[in-house]
Design a protein around this nucleic acid. Structure first.
Lengths: 131, 131
DNA sequence: CGCCTATACTTGATTAAATCAAGCGCTCTA
DNA sequence: TAGAGCGCTTGATTTAATCAAGTATAGGCG
């Protein structure tokens, strides 16, 4: 099973200067990855430390099919590494690489941005999900 | 037509401490919005200044249906304002609010992060899209 | 020992979302 | 006056996410 990530759009976003294309292209590469559903959530969750598959599924309330796919994608992109501890009671753990950990300030910035600018836009996330 | 944004997951992402719930909840609110397809691209594009509908469609290579939906969502979230200049040669422009402009450092951080950590992961974005 | 639960997935069916294709009212340019 | 462009909307199609179920096996429990 191979996961492919296709770029989200053509290059010219704001700057039409070809010398600036790299900047826009960099942004597109990063944004294309981060805007994939669950990606930021998974990375955020892994900031706390290495985690197993089922634990990730439980935390994010993601179904296993999608989680497998996203983890493969993130591994291919070099954001995390999968370590198989034992094959047959399946016991795996996922851990961020340096690239993954480098996203920490960005994710924190998103959190503080939304606390400042998204106060009223409530989606009803926090309190009740488990009894 | 009303756009609804539903939260992407349950709360406990890394911290199980209820006093930290707000931090995680803030992150989820922000990430749920930003990971919507095209959202970051649109904001990035609008950083250059107010832009019309068709221009945004051309820049991002997004189809009009999705663009309308995303713009409504972003307007509802308070990231941009729509200004109708004339009703009947339809001339509208979309402009970032302060909330939207506050995302600039975050988007720039994403660009520089991917230039440092995503070099090899090439998606074939930049050069050819239009003949 | 045999029963039960848990892990890390895969496979196939269903549902939700994004994209394509086309069109509308209107005005400005050629 | 014919054609192109603007800012959308509607309906059909393609693509992606989610649900439901199953697999092999280790370890705890009575």
């Amino acid at each position: 099973m191979s996961e492919e990530l296709e770029p989200i759009s053509n290059p010219e976003l704001g700057s039409h200067d070809p010398s600036q294309c790299d900047l826009a292209a960099d942004f597109i590469r990063g944004a294309s990855l981060l805007q994939e559903k669950w990606v930021m959530m998974i990375v955020y969750s892994l900031l706390a430390g290495p985690t197993g598959f089922s634990e990730l599924v439980r935390r994010g309330n993601v179904n296993t099919t999608t989680m497998t796919q996203r983890l493969n994608l993130l591994e291919a992109a070099g954001l995390l590494v999968k370590t198989v501890h034992s094959t047959m009671p399946p016991r795996t753990s996922y851990e961020l690489t340096e690239s993954g950990r480098a996203l920490k300030p960005i994710l924190e910035a998103i959190a503080s941005w939304s606390s400042e600018h998204l106060k009223d836009v409530n989606l009803g996330a926090c309190p009740p999900t488990e009894p």
